[in-house]
């Protein structure tokens, strides 16, 4: 081959074709997804918690998707009543679908673990609840305090498993509270949206004014 322009044309054609097929066309199609009426947008605190989730890199060990029960055991493991669908993720930016399950899937963790106490002590040190866990501890999300120093009305948690000296408790930081609020909001148990609900709105480039 002697012509550079021929090479460049071919190279560009390849990438334009692939981008059209896997980015542009899906954008026009997925753009038609309806927002499920049962799925609320993240509150300010939940959105902050999601940012904490992203910044700590939780996605490298935790997926957020339930695959088709026909050929996976995701549903049978209790990770969700059905496979997740595109409309379950309309508010997720960036997506956190994940490609690794060193830990369990979290798309329905808000259903499985509704307890603040569980989440906080688990985040402070997962081995306080499960000695075999290999999840990192996140002590920097908590203030460790003497129980005598607590002010009235202050929320605190004691940690089991000998992970704190006696007399010490943990007080969640705002980031920890936000993260737990986000985790508790992860629920995709409503029926698959059919797109016919009265509250359904289209999202995507052409009707952005309807986005909440």
């Amino acid at each position: 081959m002697t012509r550079i322009w021929l090479l460049i044309t071919g190279v560009l054609a390849i990438i334009v074709f692939a981008t059209s097929l896997l980015v542009v066309i899906p954008n026009t199609m997925i753009g038609q997804v309806r927002v499920p009426s049962q799925l609320a947008p993240y509150t300010g605190q939940q959105a902050r918690g999601r940012a904490v989730y992203v910044a700590q890199g939780c996605v490298y060990c935790h997926s957020q998707q339930v695959r088709d029960p026909v050929y996976t055991s995701d549903k049978d493991r209790g990770w969700g009543p059905r496979a997740t669908v595109p409309s379950d993720y309309v508010y997720d930016k960036p997506h956190q679908l994940g490609t690794m399950r060193t830990g369990p899937d979290l798309i329905n963790i808000g259903v499985r673990q509704p307890s603040d106490q569980w989440h906080h002590t688990h985040l402070f040190n997962p081995r306080s609840l499960m000695p075999w866990s290999i999840m990192p501890a996140f002590p920097y999300l908590y203030d460790v305090r003497d129980s005598s120093s607590l002010k009235p009305g202050e929320v605190f948690y004691s940690v089991a498993g000998g992970k704190l000296p006696t007399g010490k408790v943990i007080v969640p930081t705002a980031d920890a509270d936000a993260l737990v609020a986000y985790l508790k909001s992860l629920k995709r148990t409503y029926p698959v949206p059919t797109g016919n609900e009265p509250a359904a709105r289209s999202i995507g480039g052409r009707s952005e004014q309807t986005m909440p």
Binding site: V16, S20, L21, V24, I25, N27, T28, M29, G205
Partner: peptide, 13 residues
């Protein structure tokens, strides 16, 4: 992004 898949399909063709 282009307005419809038809446009895209034609462009790719």
């Amino acid at each position: 992004m282009l307005p419809s898949s038809l446009t895209v399909t034609l462009a790719i063709t």
